[in-house]
Amino acid sequence: MRILEAESVTKYFGGMAAVSDVGFHVDKGEILGVIGPNGAGKTTLFNLISGALPLSSGEIRFKGRKTSGLKAHQICRLGLARTFQLVKVFGNLSVLQNVMLGSLFGKQVVTSQADAMREAMESLEFVGLAKEINAPAKDLTLGNQKRLEVARALATKPEVLMLDELMAGLNPTEISEAIADMKRLKDQGITIIMIEHVMKVIMSVCDRIIVLHHGKKIADGTPQEVTTSSKVIEVYLGDSEIECSTAG
C-alpha cells in the first residue's frame, strides 16, 4: 500500500529550482533512503513533505489525502513526524518535557498530562534515554540529542517518520545502535524515510533508495540497483574519463 505519494513536486527559490518535478512513493512499512550530493534538494524535499515550506507546484498525498497546502502542525497530527538535520531540541526544557510536548500536541486525540507522561516515557525507553528524563535537553551529548528528537517525533505516534541525517556526527558505536533502533521501528510498522550520507547505513537498512541531483530524481530502486546505476556513479564519482585522467 502506498502510504505517501509525491507527484511532480517542484519548489523554486527565486528563479532556482531546488526541487524539480520529483515524483516518488513510499510503501507502508518500508525504509526509503534519500541520497544525493550536497545541495541536491534532499532537505528541501523533506521540508515540502512536512509542510515547513509550501510547494511551488505538484502534489503530495499521505494515505490518499492531499497534504500539500496543509500547515506543518496539521501534517504532524495526521501521522507524519520528522527530525532535523541540525538538532532542534528545546534546550531549556527537560528531556521528558521535550517528548511530552510531542505527545500532548502531535496527535489528533486529546491527551491528558498523565497519559502524555506515560507515552513520553515509552518513547524515551525505546531510544534509551529513560535515565536522563530530568536533565535539560541542552546538557545531552549530540548523539543523545538526536535520540531525543527521535523520541519526540515518536511521541506524536507517527505512521511515517522522516529522519534527516540522523547519523551525521555520531560515532561508529552510536551508528550501530541507531541502525538497530531503525530496524526495531520498522518491526513496529513505522514507515521511515531517511536522508543519509553514511553508505553503510543506507546499504544495510534501506529497502529502496531514491537519488536526487540538482533537484531532480535520477534513480529509484533497491540499494543494489542504485549503486550499480551508471548515472549515480557518474554523479558521485564524476564520469569515467575524468576519473582516469586524475588517476593517471
Binding site: S50, A52, K71, H73, F84, K88, F90, N98, G102
Partner: peptide, 15 residues
Amino acid sequence: QSIGEYEEAAEHIGI
C-alpha cells in the same frame, strides 16, 4: 516555552 526555543520544531510536533 517550546516556541521560544525553536518555533520550527514546535510546529513540527503538532503545535
